[in-house]
Nucleic acid binder design. Structure first.
Length: 478
DNA sequence: TGAAATGTTGGGGCG
DNA sequence: ACGCCCCAACATTTC
């Protein structure tokens, strides 16, 4: 090769379009080595997810195949990033390493340390958020801890950076002679999951996005609470765009989503549609809010955002926790989404709130147990968003719901799965339960034998939780 | 992006 | 026609 190459390290940005760091690397005019590093340490994490790893491998394959259009390929190597990079710099003669910033505290530490460990230029770019951490601050320079004022200040100015990557074969490095382990198989990584992995590539994600913006987004405000059984084959009106896993791995950029929505918003007058678009964009803002929160307050990763409820005595109830995980609590509206989670690695937002309320408020089990379980199964499992959601539900977080806001599983069920269709889909043992009893089958004269009685009485549980939270709050010194 | 307890009002049954 | 009670229906307060 004539010029010395530059390494572009893919992480949570598995796409070629609108990839700021990649674009900057290409702009240098140096040949680019596209790299993905599989760090075996993630396997040891208590948050490791077989399903998410399977999704990631497919995403890597998609990038590799798209790179093939430019007569190049994705270099995949295993190991500690700095060791892999040292070696690759040595063998390739690369003069720089470019990547997009990952704002989680583990990644920030790792990436900062790289600057010292590598002798070449290391450059990090803001790409994964419309506004990076630090870009939305109060006038006194402090980060926001309440969503509404954050959102008010959250003012997107960036445009979609690059509509199409302009690449030519010559831009990419001649990769001959570089070690490439290739995208590993499930077998190689000992992946055990039955979750069907959805189509994963940039073109698919873009289609899904534009389809959604074209029609379904129109009714998002009202449909968002509706419980879709499966985002891929459910033909009922669905509020969910089911794009979260694509955001999680950067197959879709938030700029692409934001500006697609914005483009429609600018050309439409109907109030209800405008409201729906705003509400949908607001969910993108929530994503950014929680990423900022975890960046500014890394202690949330280890415990409560607020210490008010630190004295709270969460219950140690392994059997009940297991019943919750297995979808065997006896409350259909809790069990259905828990089964769905294990089956497809996803559940709608309303369902996440319901099952989180049940674990933390009805069972009074620590939100971190729920956080962990979600991380182990969710295809979109993201440390910041997941943590934010759980602390919100538990009442320990930023801008959290007050502790006394306790969902009644039966009323939630009647409200958001009126016909019981969602329940019957995921709980086949309740298929023949009459409509009258679908939300509370224990009231039947002879309930289905293969479905458990409620593991806890809601009314009793509610009282117990109110008391426990009150006690914890009063224990806190003024 | 709650639900339950408590309070208030007003129509209707009934003596 | 009146007073009384019951109890939806709605509103407010409380957790």
């Amino acid at each position: 090769m004539s010029k010395a190459p530059i390494i572009f390290w893919f992480r949570r940005d598995l796409r070629l379009d609108d990839n700021i760091g990649l674009h900057e690397a290409i702009k240098t005019g140096q040949p680019v080595i596209p790299l993905y590093i599989l760090d075996p340490r993630i396997r040891d994490s208590e948050w490791y997810s077989h399903a998410r790893m399977a999704f990631l491998l497919s995403a890597m394959q998609a990038v590799d195949s798209r790179l093939g259009e430019y007569n190049t390929e994705l270099i995949v190597q295993h190991g500690n990033p700095h060791e892999v990079l040292l070696e690759l710099i040595d063998t390739s003669g690369a003069t720089a390493v470019y990547f997009n910033a990952d704002y989680t505290s583990f990644a920030v530490k790792r990436d900062t340390a790289l600057q010292d460990k590598l002798s070449v230029e290391v450059k990090s770019f803001d790409d994964g958020l419309l506004i990076p951490p630090g870009g939305v601050l109060k006038d006194d320079g402090d980060p926001y801890v309440v969503y509404t004022p954050f959102k008010k200040k959250w003012n997107v100015k960036t445009k979609p950076a690059i509509s199409t990557v302009e690449m030519t074969a010559s831009v990419f490095s001649d990769l001959q002679g570089l070690q490439n382990d290739g995208v590993p198989s499930h077998q190689q990584l000992k992946i055990e999951t039955d979750i069907p992995i959805p189509p994963i590539d940039e073109a698919y994600a873009q289609d899904r996005l534009s389809d959604y913006i074209k029609t379904s987004i129109n009714t998002y405000s009202s449909a968002r609470n509706y419980l879709p059984t499966n985002p891929f084959d459910d033909d009922r009106p669905s509020g969910s765009s089911y794009l979260s896993p694509y955001f999680r791995f950067g197959i879709l950029s938030p700029r692409q989503a934001y500006w697609a929505a914005h483009g429609k918003y600018a050309n439409i007058e109907a109030k209800s549609i405008r409201d729906s678009i705003e509400t949908w964009v607001s969910e993108l803002t929530w994503r950014e809010f929680y990423m900022h929160i975890m960046y500014h307050f890394p202690h949330v990763r280890r415990g409560n955002f607020r210490d008010t409820y630190d004295p709270l005595e969460w219950r140690d109830a392994p059997d009940e926790l297991q019943a919750w995980k297995d979808g065997q609590t006896g409350y259909p509206i809790v069990d259905a989404p828990m089964r769905q989670l294990k089956a497809i690695g996803w559940m709608p937002n309303r369902a996440r709130m319901i099952v989180a309320s049940f674990l933390t408020k009805d069972l009074l089990i620590h939100w971190q147990e729920g956080e962990k379980h979600f991380m182990q199964y969710l295809l979109d499992g993201d440390p910041a968003a997941n943590n934010g959601g759980w602390q919100w539900a538990a009442g320990t977080g930023t801008d959290a719901q007050p502790y006394f806001r306790i969902f009644n599983p039966v009323s939630q069920s009647k409200k958001f799965d009126k016909d019981g269709e969602y329940i019957r889909h995921w709980l086949p043992e309740l298929e023949d339960v009459p409509q009258k009893y679908i939300h509370e089958p224990w009231k039947m004269d002879s309930p289905p034998e293969n479905y458990p009685d409620p593991i806890v009485d809601h009314k009793f549980a509610r009282e117990r939780t109110l008391e426990a939270f009150k006690k914890a709050k009063d224990a806190e010194p003024a």
